[in-house]
Design a protein around this nucleic acid. Structure first.
Lengths: 331, 331
DNA sequence: GTGAAAGCGCTAACAG
DNA sequence: CTGTTAGCGCTTTCAC
């Protein structure tokens, strides 16, 4: 068993309070006794008991991170950044995986609340009034990434503008027909507890906005799960050369794979652009044109914003991180 | 502020003990009062205080997961499985990233120990007597994945056999010359605190064992950081067609990329085989032949083993998980 | 079946 | 500068 502060006090013939002052750099103690106590603490391999400390101070120095899935590169890169940033401030992260299950998410949030995490970073799956009320009832500082929830500070890229700029980029590459691929939109439900696709939604809006502004261009939106086969038929129908602008690299990768399997060559037969600049793209041939969203930066920012909220500092409700278009070989 | 058990007791006109019995399904209480207390608890949105509970019970219901880096698919897939398995048993995971920094790893371990995690899962970077002693001094159940540390239970595939079988598979594909690519071996140092590459080492041994057993085959081992360019020159020297067997898919991907850039076609000009079956391989063309190590299974097993250690049950020191060779198009 | 009380290890306010 | 003490919220043992 590890030695406690009380035992240290006895050994050093001082009081608990004095030991505390010595070990935690608190003022009101002479250099000599501080040295002595620290020395004894080292000898006995004293290890502070953060649980007891948390209980006493009302701060757990831990924060909860709630993501869909760590298998997804987006979340793992982000969690990596969050974890590092948190630790550099003395916080450790409970990273938990919802698997996009609403019930799991709820349970996780309650458990984290019971663990008295000092803050939460999450990518909300759900939205709606009830959901937000539940989140607020946790009485824990929250920052969201990606999908936004009204009234809760969040960090993301300017999805609208990024999609708008990308559409412009594609059209400048000479395409007269652009197809936006965004399967998650399909899941749009109604009422409380429906899936939160705010981020995807804003990308779609940005895309549409550009296309409408440039009336000569044709556009379509693919939101079925079967987007790959639909895309292939579109290409085969072959009126005009089409660019497929995917709301995530994940879909662009799927599409590229399916195109290859069906003998469609990119960019000869069709254009392709993704979103997110997942780091695996470097291994993909041809290099997929995409939008870089600096996932790590988002994670870092989210954590830093959260720390401000915890410290009761004012923060912006919306924090945009920079993005940029990464030219590839698929347009 | 959340309501406490003490306040609940006052409201219900019972004692703290009784509330505890009601809320935690402990015996020694009448159904009626139990019902009544639970009802009131719900009304007041009572939230158990896991920190207080931990302090009192001496169990934090949390476990520490120490990995190099969540950006690496191997670790993120594993952490995902660990996190899920842990939660299904009521444990939450502190996932922390060392960035392969020995000092960080040490700090993290001490911090986790201070947080009184009930167990640790780690991929050790270092090895050596001192290191192991330090780990043992933490007095926390540990399970390692991949690299093994003497005396500490660990989960991995049978690296030796997997490499042996793979070499056999490659030779059956007709190759007379096989080159094993294993850059980490370079880092092999001496003394305590040297990098732990046990897992890579056993793969190398398995490979060599097969090659020696089959004397007619030629083999080489590439362990420099510049393995890509060396491999290219080997292919260009072009005596015999060579297969490159990489100790990790990560290197196979690098190599494939570099081959492509230098106009070397796989498998026409050279063979290629990886290790780990990272899930991004599905997007890579040509499909890389590899060994599937069921990363998720490893994570799950590690967690389950750890839970047994925590429960003081006997466990095997070495737990192998199944592997299998995944045929691709690169041999 | 229920209550009272002594911890768990640390912190912080107050006295001296 | 140092000691004392009352918590933090929950668990657990022992009486009744």
């Amino acid at each position: 068993m590890a030695i406690t502060i009380k035992e240290l006090a006895e050994i050093c013939n001082v009081s608990r309070g004095t030991v505390d002052r010595a070990l935690n750099g608190r003022p009101g103690i002479s250099g000599a006794t501080r040295e002595r106590i620290q020395q004894v603490a080292r000898e006995y391999h004293y290890r502070p008991h953060l649980i007891a400390s948390s209980l006493s101070r009302g701060k757990s120095m831990s924060i909860g991170v709630v993501v869909f899935d760590l298998k997804n590169r987006f979340f793992s890169q982000m969690s990596n950044a969050i974890s590092l940033t948190a630790r550099s401030h003395g916080y450790f992260t409970y990273i938990s995986v919802t698997e996009k299950d609403i019930e799991s998410e709820k349970q996780i949030l309650h458990n984290l609340a019971s663990r008295r995490v000092d803050g939460l970073i999450m990518l909300p799956i759900t939205q709606g009034r009830t959901y937000i009320r539940e989140l607020k009832e946790l009485e824990i500082p929250i920052v969201t990434i990606g999908n936004q929830l009204p009234g809760i500070p969040h960090v993301s890229i300017n999805d609208f503008k990024a999609a708008y700029d990308s559409a412009e980029y594609i059209s400048r590459a000479g395409y007269k027909r652009i197809c936006f691929v965004c399967p998650p939109l399909r899941k749009k439900g109604t009422g409380n507890g429906r899936l939160n696709i705010a981020s995807q939604d804003r990308r779609t809006q940005g895309f549409i906005h550009f296309m409408k502004k440039n009336g000569t261009l044709k556009y379509e939106i693919l939101m079925g799960k079967d987007f790959s086969s639909v895309a292939v038929s579109m290409v085969r129908a072959g009126k005009e050369k089409t660019a497929f602008f995917c709301s995530s690299d994940v879909y662009a990768l799927e599409l590229l794979k399916y195109f290859r399997e069906t003998g469609i060559s990119v960019p000869k037969d069709a254009g392709l652009m993704g979103f997110d600049n997942l780091d695996i793209l470097t291994f993909i041939n041809p290099r997929i044109t995409t939008v870089s969203t600096s996932i790590e930066e988002a994670g870092k920012q989210a954590m830093e914003t959260l720390l401000k909220v915890i410290a009761d500092e004012k923060v912006e409700k919306t924090n945009y991180i920079p993005f940029q278009i990464c030219p590839g070989e698929t347009l």
